[in-house]
């Protein structure tokens, strides 16, 4: 793997390791020798059992936490520079909207901090509200919205400064199945409209397959990447989720997850099955 940066690379992670509580009894190797390259406009999902380091990897990319060794380049820059230049937007499982601000003002927060003036901000937040189909709710308070609507506001907010990269940590994790599928379609539409590079963390295999160009499978203790599965579903339609190809991809991801399941004694028997 070369460390040279070509213009098509949105994210270049090589040999990254991260240890929490180094040297004491609680030491956890959250990331071990992680290599990942994402090209511009690609949609990748990180999937793996709880504690395998998905969130940690996302935080490393976003410079929300540091790492111990290796190198990370976000659009050819260090994570810190990328963060300071506001090259990514982020959304979490909790919408984390600010109660004391209206929906519009929540979306405008990153713009305020980036020094946009008021009229520009208002134009932009109206545009984004339209994108997430919440135009009538700009003056509402966040707590007046349903969980799905709040999550849409959070996504609009992550897109506010129009960053090329979107980091999403289980953004639909707290939603019911119906809302979740609707949100997935909306995210795909937004992706088509904006051409963002997206790194998406999820626990759901079908969700990962449905959304992504590539599913990155991780396994814990130590947290590492164990498989990458290319998904080639083409344009998603109403029948995509029922297609054989979709099931085939879901099965591949499931097997990749099972292969490195070190949590039980049944590892070897699973291996036998595969």
């Amino acid at each position: 793997m070369t460390t040279t940066f070509d213009t098509g690379s949105a994210l270049a992670i090589s040999n990254v390791s991260k240890v929490f509580n180094k040297g004491n009894e609680n030491e956890v190797i959250a990331l071990s020798d992680v290599n990942l390259n994402v090209h511009t406009g690609e949609f990748i999902s990180l999937i793996g059992p709880s504690g395998c380091g998905k969130s940690t990897l996302l935080r490393v990319i976003g410079d929300l936490t540091g790492f111990d060794s290796g190198s990370v380049q976000v659009s050819g820059k260090s994570p810190e520079d990328a963060r300071k230049e506001r090259l990514y937007g982020i959304a979490f499982q909790q919408a984390a909207l600010f109660d004391w601000r209206t929906v519009s003002k929540n979306i405008e927060l990153p713009l305020e901090l980036a020094g946009w003036d008021k009229s520009q901000r208002e134009v932009r937040s109206a545009e984004l509200l339209e994108m997430v189909q919440l135009s009538e709710f700009g003056n509402h308070r966040p707590w007046e919205l349903s969980g799905g609507m709040q999550q849409r506001v959070a996504i609009a907010r992550s897109l506010a400064v129009d960053p090329p990269l979107l980091l999403m940590d289980e953004p639909f994790g707290a939603l019911d199945e119906m809302t979740r599928e609707r949100m997935q379609n909306e995210l795909l539409r937004i992706r088509l409209d904006t051409g963002k590079t997206i790194v998406f963390v999820t626990h759901s295999i079908p969700e990962a397959v449905y959304l992504s160009d590539r599913v990155v499978v991780m396994s814990p203790r130590p947290g590492r990447i164990t498989a990458e599965i290319n998904v080639d579903l083409g344009e998603r339609t109403e029948t995509t989720r029922e297609s054989d190809h979709f099931f085939h991809c879901v099965t591949s991801v499931r097997e990749a997850l099972r292969l490195h399941d070190t949590s039980g004694t049944s590892t070897s028997s699973f291996r036998g099955e595969v």
């Binding site: 929300l64 506001r86 937007g89 600010f98 927060l109 990153p110 305020e112 980036a114």
Partner: peptide
């Protein structure tokens, strides 16, 4: 919450901005 603080960090907010736009209103 740490999520709110991480959001502010992702916006490259200075300590004073974090105080003024997040900590202070959250403390009401």
């Amino acid at each position: 919450s740490s999520t709110s603080l991480e959001l502010m960090r992702s916006y490259a907010a200075t300590n004073n901005k974090v105080l003024w736009k997040l900590r202070f209103p959250a403390s009401i």
